[in-house]
């Protein structure tokens, strides 16, 4: 346990610099989004009100009041989220491959640590989770700041202020910031399962190299297939026999089995099949 925590700490520090850069870029992009959208809206308002001699009320009626929704839908905002997602997805792979790459074969050291090798697996998975939740927390904080910035630029009569939830429920953000606790557990639970399955697939490649790519991909497909099995059987074989709640429970169980499978196989590969 102790060495596991030390490994988490180590993995965290290893990515920290890049992570901070990612955070800063995200902040800059989102501030850009707020400022560009807010000022663009106000510029338009000025043009229409002063140029076309429209009253404020008519303007708001015709053009809709300003909400954070506009910011959230803007390109800069969208790409800031996409950037974070892509970087973390790449890091799910790189967190393993970096140990093998280059002349400095750190994997020798890691595999020779006097601790269960599964701890490496868990530490890396934990580090990824910490990075993900760090970004999620950052997003919530950024929302508060961005709303404040918006309030400075757009006067009260032009805006409708809604709680954060309203902006995240009906678009791509609902995946990152789910509306309910159940959704949260479900989405991030699936995320954890996906990370572990990917880790185990990577380990297949690391153990068997070229052949391992095929093993890894096959393993991944089998895992996805197993996970979707209740849904598929219900839809195509049983013709929607189960209630949604029943299906939901079965899916959760399938997910847990896939997770246990990923960890168990990962443990086996690290213990008996891994090569430096």
């Amino acid at each position: 346990m102790n060495r596991y925590l030390k490994l988490v700490n180590f993995e965290f520090n290893r990515f920290f610099k890049l992570y901070i850069v990612l955070v800063i870029v995200t902040i800059i992009m989102q501030f850009f989004a707020v400022i560009l959208e807010s000022r663009g809206y106000m510029r338009e308002a000025k043009n229409v009100i002063y140029g076309d001699m429209m009253s404020k009320a008519d303007f708001i009626k015709n053009y809709e009041a300003f909400t954070m929704q506009r910011v959230v839908q803007s390109n800069w905002f969208y790409w800031s989220i996409a950037l974070c997602v892509v970087v973390l997805l790449i890091y799910v792979f790189f967190i393993w491959y970096r140990d093998w790459l280059g002349k400095n074969s750190f994997i020798y050291r890691l595999l020779m640590l006097p601790t269960a090798r599964l701890n490496l697996y868990f530490a890396k998975a934990t580090a990824i989770l910490i990075f993900v939740f760090g970004l999620v927390a950052l997003q919530l904080l950024l929302f508060l700041i961005e709303m404040q910035i918006m309030k400075w630029i757009v006067p009260a009569e032009f805006r409708v202020d809604l709680p954060i939830k309203e902006y995240t429920d009906f678009n791509y953000l609902s995946v990152i910031l789910p509306g309910s606790l159940i959704d949260f557990l479900l989405f991030y639970g699936m995320g954890i399962v996906a990370v572990c399955v990917t880790f185990t697939a990577i380990l297949f490649e690391r153990c068997y190299r070229l052949k391992g790519i095929i093993f890894g991909i096959s393993y991944g497909l089998v895992s996805v297939g197993f996970f979707l099995m209740p849904l598929l059987i219900d839809t195509f074989v049983l013709n929607y026999y189960f209630f949604p709640v029943e299906l939901f429970v079965m899916e959760v169980i399938a997910g847990i089995i896939v997770l246990i499978g990923a960890v168990w196989i990962g443990n086996y590969l690290l213990k008996y099949k891994i090569r430096v």
């Binding site: 290893r14 280059g102 400095n104 074969s105 750190f106 020798y108 050291r109």
Partner: peptide, 11 residues
């Protein structure tokens, strides 16, 4: 312990 012919610590 094993001392390989490449260094085992990150650069």
């Amino acid at each position: 312990t094993f001392i390989p012919d490449t260094i085992t610590m990150p650069p």
